[in-house]
């Protein structure tokens, strides 16, 4: 699917952020241990002050890294949710339209597969039916829908997706 590319990128971004976060956290823990050791020995030394500053910065880095990771995960999920909603809405529209045309259950199946872009041979294979049967079913579907063929049949639902504005101008 074409819509997967940005999501794949975001997933990779998530993995990278997690790796950074993990390494940073482990580093912070060891640094803090070291700083506490130094604190006991000589809290006035430049070495201690410098290391304490670095550790503080690293700790802040961990917190901001975690926040960035959370934001990325939230975005990824929002995209997936939106896609799910769109999918669900489209399938609702298709179902309602098929019912309005009075398609039989078998015709609905064939119609859905045709909308997904399968050709007659593929539909026949999926449904374990003869190609002649599928061709006859498609013809009945087109006639019930009042469309000239597969292109118009598919366009019927695409047009719905594009909204009313297009219809008014046509």
């Amino acid at each position: 699917m074409t819509g997967r590319t940005p999501q794949e990128a975001r997933r990779r971004q998530t993995a990278a952020l997690v790796a950074f976060l993990l390494v940073q956290t482990l580093a912070v823990v060891f640094f803090i241990g070291d700083v506490i050791g130094d604190l006991r020995e000589d809290p006035q030394s430049i070495h201690f002050i410098f290391e304490a500053l670095v550790t503080g910065a690293l700790t802040l880095g961990v917190v901001f890294g975690a926040l960035a990771l959370r934001r990325t995960i939230d975005l990824l999920r929002a995209q997936e949710a939106a896609l799910d909603v769109a999918r669900g809405a489209l399938s609702d529209v298709i179902e309602a339209q098929f019912a309005a045309w009075g398609l039989t259950p078998a015709e609905r199946d064939v119609g859905l597969l045709a909308l997904k872009g399968l050709d007659v041979a593929e539909i026949a294979e999926v449904r374990g039916a003869a190609q002649g049967t599928v061709r006859a079913q498609l013809t009945r579907i087109y006639s019930k829908a009042g469309v000239s063929g597969r292109a118009q049949f598919a366009a019927y639902f695409v047009e719905d997706l594009m909204g009313q504005g297009l219809k008014a101008q046509a």
Binding site: L21, T25, V28, V29, G33, V62, V63, A66, R70, D74
Partner: peptide, 19 residues
């Protein structure tokens, strides 16, 4: 044990700022 400190700290931080 020290790696455990890091992992536990990360999980606890995540319990505040995570999803």
């Amino acid at each position: 044990g020290w790696i455990g400190i890091g992992l536990l700290a990360l999980r606890l931080l995540w319990g505040i700022v995570g999803p």
